[in-house]
Design a protein around this nucleic acid. Structure first.
Length: 277
DNA sequence: GCGACAG
DNA sequence: ATCTTGTCGC
């Protein structure tokens, strides 16, 4: 018998988390936390004629089956600016074998999302996104490398991390953020910089609309500065959750429900096929 | 040691 | 992530 708690359960072993941590640290070396793109926002002061403007913003999200949380639908949408109309969407239905572990979301969700992105790029689709918004944090993460960073580096794409809940890092606390925003309730600025105990700026808490008490949390994913990331988020917010992510969320959920019966059969766990004589 | 912990 | 109806308001 093993003396150590080599608990033979389905959850991740310490070894796995160690491997994942090393992989995050390795990929983190390629992280670019400043503006590394050629487009400009149409609201930019310098309206140079030659430069391209930001027109195609992507969003990714995943939904899960309530009966079987390992059955998931990943969705990529692309919205056109400034209309915020969806000009492209794509889905992938699959069964996940990697569990959700706080701090390691990317190992569960990045592979599929990357696959959908690559498919679009390989097809040289004209609406391939110039920047991608991700339903998960960027550098606002225990090791400064959340899903948005992970996806950005692997896809070599500018990405923005958007969290609906605060990942408690470096002393950052949800109620403190809310209090700070409460103090600014009368000011024009609905944004609060998230500075941890160490002095590091991890992102910003942001209230997109006047009615939304609960903030969203924006952080740098890859190849973009925090200021630019916030600018992009601002111009894509019709509701609390920015449109690209909201549309990916709505559509992935709808797709899952529409194909619930079929997909459940397709992805059903069958015992190994031993019908051969 | 205990609690906290994106989706 | 998911479980969940109505309701108040623009």
């Amino acid at each position: 018998m093993d003396s150590e708690g080599a608990s033979s359960e389905s959850s991740s072993s310490g070894d796995q988390l160690e491997k994942w941590t090393e992989e995050q640290d390795e990929l983190k070396k390629k992280l670019i936390a400043y503006d590394d793109f050629t487009w400009k926002l149409s609201s930019s002061t310098e309206l140079s004629q030659g430069s391209e403007i930001l027109k195609y913003v992507g969003g990714v999200d995943m939904s899960f089956c309530k009966e079987d949380s390992s059955v998931a639908c990943a969705c990529l949408v692309v919205l056109e600016l400034p209309s915020l109309r969806v000009v492209h969407h794509d889905f992938s239905l699959l069964r996940l074998h990697v569990p959700y572990v706080p701090g390691f979301l990317a190992f569960r969700e990045a592979p599929v999302l990357l696959q959908i992105l690559q498919k679009m790029r390989d097809e040289k689709h004209p609406f391939y996104p110039q920047v991608l918004m991700v339903d998960g944090n960027g550098i606002l993460h225990p090791r400064g490398f959340g899903l948005a960073c992970h996806l950005g580096v692997l896809a070599h794409l500018p990405t923005i991390g958007v969290g609906k809940n605060l990942h408690h890092v470096d002393g950052l606390n949800q109620s403190e953020v809310k209090q700070s925003l409460q103090l600014q309730i009368n000011e024009h600025e609905q944004t609060i910089t998230l500075v941890g105990n160490s002095g590091i700026t991890w992102g910003v808490g942001f209230r997109p609309t006047l009615s939304s008490l609960k903030p969203i949390y924006v952080s740098v994913g890859h190849r973009i500065s925090l200021d630019s990331a916030v600018e992009v988020v601002k111009i894509t917010c019709k509701y609390r959750v920015p449109e690209p992510i909201r549309q990916a969320d709505i559509r992935s959920r709808a797709y899952l429900q529409k194909h619930q019966t079929e997909s459940f059969k397709e992805l059903a766990v069958r015992p190994p096929d031993q019908t051969e004589p």
